[in-house]
Design a binder for these strands. Structure first.
Length: 195
DNA sequence: CACCCGATTATCT
DNA sequence: GATAATCGGGTGT
């Protein structure tokens, strides 16, 4: 297992490519003296003016600043009055904004702590959704705009490479616009993929 | 397991 | 004032 932190050059590419390539990578969070980690098993790509479903579609606002900021940083937002969603800023140099939503992870380290964070014993539904994994890993608004390439608290490592045959691609979930784009990437045969 | 629905609040129009 | 990149509980199959 490769434990190197993903470099700038990983994120400095087309957002859709990065979404695909993040599968198999590992999110690590040092949370209250515990190490929590999960393998990324589901992602979605969100673009700029080409993508009506993206928060960045209508240009920069206070909330979406991080999507326009440097790649390899976090974009965390609060949604439905209840949940945080964790994204990684990624895009090619010529595009003003873009991010990859982490929709599900497979819990690997600190599972008991994740269960406490979620107040839930069931392993199966611990991290199989974007709002669930942030709660399990202890990711909140305070991590917004954090540099994931420098931080010793929250970062993403190489993990393992995923073969094309182990990936399936679908439309994105939970959006009302641009439903036709196949910008959701999932690992096959993984019980933490949200559906 | 599938479908339906209410909760709850930051954000933008 | 409407909307939202969600979740969990309820009901029915």
């Amino acid at each position: 297992m490769d434990t190197k932190i993903l470099p700038y050059s990983f994120y400095d590419r087309d957002t859709i490519i990065v979404a695909r390539e993040l599968l198999g990578k590992i999110i690590v969070h040092y949370h209250q003296d515990q190490v929590l980690a999960g393998i990324i098993v589901e992602t979605e790509s969100y673009g700029y003016s080409d993508d009506p479903a993206s928060h960045a579609y209508r240009g920069k606002t206070p909330r979406t600043q991080a999507m326009f900021g440097p790649v390899g940083h976090a974009y965390v937002y609060f949604i439905y009055g209840n949940h945080y969603c964790f994204n990684v800023v990624a895009r090619s140099v010529d595009v003003p904004a873009g991010a990859v939503l982490i929709r599900a992870v497979e819990p690997v380290i600190g599972v008991e702590c994740m269960q406490r964070n979620r107040n839930l014993a069931k392993i199966k539904s611990l991290t199989n959704g974007p709002g669930k994994l942030t709660q399990a890993l202890g990711i909140t608004q305070q991590h917004n705009a954090l540099n994931l390439m420098q931080s010793s608290v929250l970062y993403i490592t190489q993990g393992r490479d995923i073969d094309e045959r182990d990936v399936f691609i679908t439309p994105r979930i939970g959006i009302s616009k641009a439903k036709e784009n196949l910008w959701r990437f999932c690992l096959k045969n993984n019980q933490w993929v949200s559906r």
